[in-house]
């Protein structure tokens, strides 16, 4: 009976993971398939689709636009998110929980709501849609990611270290830069990497706020609409690897910090 339960659980886990990861693996597999039609078995492997990417200027411009959006948006979100986390954690703000929730909201709400409302706001303010407006849109949902990771880290950070620093002659500002920041650095970095990943893949908010430009995920989306090309599989594979890489770094940073903290507390 116990054995059956164990096998059942294993089978269930297998189904869940297959459902999550099989499409990704299949797409990666077909990005190396020479044939234009996606059918098994694969007759011949090729790098042609990847080679084709290099000559696709449209793709490169879109990729560049994505970076133009994601990097500054992430940088701003680091500053806003860290400061917000610090304020919420260090000072008892009246209605603090509610205010935190308000900052979290853009991350939870469907992108379409953020997208349309910002779109209307910019129209009202007579701001032309551009990569700049997309950056602002992205800041709204990366900031909460940074904020909550940093807050979690600050909760486990010994406040006496800040007191000790001020006691030894450092102003609150220098204390933050010399003592607090180095100790929450990994959480800030992890937040930034996760934020970057989300921003880099984001379509909906960008769609409502962008002018004539294209970001990479938007271009892929429009490519799919115009008909399937195995080149999409190749781009897709690269994005998956890029994102997984960032997430892996962020994750290892967070876990490394947690473990070292756990050891020193023993």
């Amino acid at each position: 009976m116990k054995y059956l339960k164990y096998v059942g659980a294993l089978l269930f886990a297998f189904i869940v993971y297959t459902f999550l990861y099989l499409p990704i693996l299949v797409t990666i597999l077909f990005s190396f398939n020479e044939s234009k039609v996606q059918v098994l078995p694969i007759k011949k492997l090729t790098f042609d689709w990847y080679r084709g990417l290099f000559s696709n200027t449209e793709l490169w411009v879109a990729a560049k636009n994505s970076l133009i959006v994601s990097l500054p948006a992430t940088l701003c979100a680091i500053v806003f998110g860290t400061l917000a986390a610090y304020l919420f954690q260090r000072y008892r703000i009246r209605g603090g929980t509610f205010l935190q929730f308000l900052i979290l909201l853009p991350y939870i709400l469907p992108g379409i709501i953020i997208g349309t409302s910002l779109n209307l706001l910019f129209k009202f303010l007579k701001v032309d849609a551009s990569l700049m407006t997309v950056i602002i849109g992205h800041i709204t949902f990366i900031t909460p990611v940074v904020m909550f990771l940093v807050m979690d880290r600050l909760k486990r950070f010994d406040r006496n270290l800040e007191f000790a620093s001020m006691d030894l002659g450092a102003s609150p500002m220098r204390t933050f830069l010399l003592i607090t920041l180095p100790n929450i650095r990994s959480a800030v970095l992890a937040g930034a990497l996760l934020g970057l990943t989300i921003s880099f893949d984001e379509v909906v908010v960008s769609f409502f706020l962008i002018g004539t430009d294209n970001t990479l995920p938007m271009l892929i989306w429009s490519m799919i609409r115009h008909g399937y090309s195995p080149q999409i599989n190749a781009v897709y594979t690269l994005i998956v690897l890029f994102s997984l890489g960032l997430i892996a770094i962020a994750g290892s940073r967070l876990f490394a910090q947690r473990n070292s903290k756990a050891i020193t507390e023993e």
Partner: peptide
């Protein structure tokens, strides 16, 4: 404010800065 007082404290849990060596802690 505390950082302008000629008074220093030894904290109960020591409050040594974990990201600095012993030398850097004392030199702070």
């Amino acid at each position: 404010p505390p950082y302008k007082r000629n008074v220093n404290t030894v904290f109960q849990n020591y409050a040594l800065f974990p990201h600095m060596t012993v030398y850097d802690n004392v030199a702070y």
